[in-house]
Simulated assay, not measured.
Amino acid sequence: MQVYPNRFAEHLNGQLKPFYLIFGDEPQQKIEAIEQLRHAARQQGFDERQSLQVDSQFQWHSLIEASQSMSLFSSRQMIELELPSGKPGTEGSKTLVTVAEHTNPDTIIVLHGDKIGRDVQNSKWFKTLDKQGVYVPCYPVEGRQLQQWIANRLRLRQIHTSAEAIALLAEHCEGNLLAAQQEIDKLPLLFPDGQIDFKQLQQAIGDHARFNVFQLVDVLLSGDINKTIKMLYRLESEGIEPVVVLWALTREWQTLYELKFAQQQGQSLSQLYKTMRIWQSRQSLYSAALQRLSLSDIELMQPKLAALDQGLKQSAIARPFVELSHLCLLFMPMPLAQIQLDY
């Protein structure tokens, strides 16, 4: 049975299952799901907890031994088995099927690890455990779902702010719920009265994050060449992966292209901003970029972005931030379209 993370706490109000499969590439959701399960298990008398990790030295018979052994201090236990790849191998698969065929009402077994594909979900061991238990897929939360997730967390902490501020926080932490939770956790300390406006939140995030790719993008859209290059090399010194910066540039290129193309078809910017859910605080940045960039300027960027993406995947670039500077200058625009990238 599949239960999504936002419904998992509600599901745990009932009788616990013998098996839980918690997999995905969103660590915050996995941490919370496991903590919620631990809490529910303790309430139902599962006071003993064992942790096992599948690595090159792991012996699968130890899982059977753990499931059969009982502590002197507790008659019920929860076994947490970390399976990083989600693939137990031939011996592990047989062991898990065997364990599933001999369930113990006093033992809960929790398997957790990174994202798994359809091949794992269609395997015999997974289907056997899933039939008797619960599968919790923990995938990144994005877009409006992320904003709703943040809004709910702020509400729980009795923090009141605007939808625009929530969107800012979502943009800052997109793809990283752990960072979003850390930001939310610090807000009651900075604003004890629970009232936070957009500028206050913007300042709080800036103080914590220093330079980040989102700030770089805003400066890039505004057309400030000197500050863009300064921030770009600061990001390099802080160890930001070039692929993250390229992702941000590609996303802004896509937005600018869609806006410019629609604008030339006679659509109004104000309506486009509403349709594309571009918040008012960023509309002036896009307006400035659209005013200085022609459609041909924007179209010239696409092959450069694609070439750098391919180069990064092939590890063919000695100084990727030099090439990123080149791409940033095209957003100004600077007459660099005919210059070949250095790889």
Rank of each mutant, 00 (worst) to 15 (best):
V110L: 13
T255Y: 01
V245Y: 09
L300S: 12
A151I: 02
H61S: 14
N6K: 11
N104P: 09
E236D: 13
L305M: 06
G223P: 10
V213H: 03
Q158M: 03
L177W: 07
R38Y: 06
P84R: 09
L221A: 10
M231I: 15
V243S: 14
P84K: 05
A163Q: 13
A41M: 05
I298V: 11
Q203D: 14
K227P: 12
L285I: 00
S237I: 05
E323M: 12
D106P: 07
A307F: 05
S296H: 12
S71K: 04
T228A: 10
F8S: 01
G266V: 03
R118C: 00
Y286Q: 05
H326F: 15
I278Q: 01
E174Y: 02
L308R: 14
I34V: 13
I150W: 04
L329Q: 15
M332C: 09
H172I: 10
A248L: 04
F321V: 06
N6R: 12
P27R: 12
Q181S: 08
M231K: 00
I339S: 14
L178R: 15
E252C: 08
E258L: 14
S284R: 11
A180E: 08
W60A: 03
Q265H: 07
V219H: 02
D55E: 10
F23A: 07
K17T: 11
E26T: 05
G206S: 14
K17W: 00
L156H: 03
L272F: 07
H172F: 03
